[in-house]
């Protein structure tokens, strides 16, 4: 019987500072035979033995298997300890877990991606997949907002994304500190939807960010004419096992770790205790 709790050692082969509190780590399994096969939107459980374990989205493109990336924001004890690691350090990895974005159902379709803060992390793999397999997808618009300009992640890739045909990137921040030059928008991320040129009637929308923010995004999308069943959200819940054993991630009868983290809007609407479709 294979023990699914066992983590495999992976070495950090690259670190990129995204913001003051967020870094992107490149990982490679020490046992090189095993690559990582995954769908964008899936996550791994990352361990620092002796400190703890947590769920983190895989942020690299699924076409690249021998190494993979995680973009991690400093929150508490585990992420603080991860933040102190350097190239050559070993972490424990098990996964991938969860369902991921419905990549197969959006082939040839237009997609609006809406994200807030570190919520862009689970969408980066999808964006890069589209860039690499451009002909398989329709138009892509990325609407991304964060608190301040220096909270934006993946800034070094915006140039590449903008260069992809029919891929458009729109940025907004809540506040611009004095003396900082900011040529983009200011205000909430829902404002960016006004720039959309995609016909919503047959398009998909993928979103990730604070749940209350997604509530407003979903509302705007529906008003704009997106079908509820074409709106998908990646939800965050407390996770310990990642495989429907520990019960921590449950929302009503759903386990976010195996039934999600990506849910369609009608699926979420049927669930209690979420901020996306219901207050409470």
């Amino acid at each position: 019987m294979k023990n699914p709790y066992i983590v495999e050692p992976a070495v950090i082969t690259g670190i990129r500072q995204e913001t003051a509190e967020t870094k992107t780590y490149t990982l490679e399994f020490i046992e090189q035979k095993r690559g990582l096969e995954f769908i964008p939107g899936q996550f791994n459980m990352i361990s620092l033995l002796g400190i703890g374990e947590g769920p983190f989205s895989i942020t690299s493109s699924p076409l690249q298997r021998n190494k993979f990336e995680h973009t991690i924001r400093l929150v508490g004890s585990l992420t603080k300890a991860l933040d102190r690691l350097s190239i050559g350090s070993t972490v424990g990895v098990r996964g991938p877990y969860g369902n991921g974005w419905p990549v197969d159902s959006v082939k040839n379709k237009d997609i609006v991606i809406v994200a807030g803060g570190v919520g862009l992390a689970p969408l980066r793999g999808l964006i890069n997949l589209v860039a690499e397999q451009r002909d398989d997808f329709g138009e892509i618009e990325i609407m991304y907002g964060s608190r301040k300009p220096d909270n934006l992640i993946f800034t070094s890739e915006y140039g590449n994304w903008r260069a992809v045909p029919n891929m458009r990137l729109f940025l907004t921040v809540d506040e611009v500190p004095k003396g900082i030059e900011w040529p983009y928008e200011q205000g909430v991320v829902t404002n960016l939807l006004g720039f959309s040129r995609i016909d919503p009637s047959n398009a998909f929308a993928f979103m990730c960010g604070p749940e209350i923010m997604m509530r407003f995004i979903a509302r705007s999308l529906i008003i704009r004419g997106f079908a509820e069943k074409n709106i998908f959200a990646s939800l965050e819940r407390r996770m310990e096992c990642g495989m429907a054993k520990c019960g921590r991630c449950m929302i009503g009868p759903k386990y976010v770790c195996i039934d999600g983290p990506v849910f369609s809007y009608p699926e979420v609407k049927a669930l209690p205790h979420n901020l996306l479709t219901a207050i409470s």
Partner: peptide, 10 residues
């Protein structure tokens, strides 16, 4: 009831 937490001890 089956819910559990996971934690490390060094």
């Amino acid at each position: 009831c089956y819910c559990f937490d996971i934690r490390d001890e060094v």
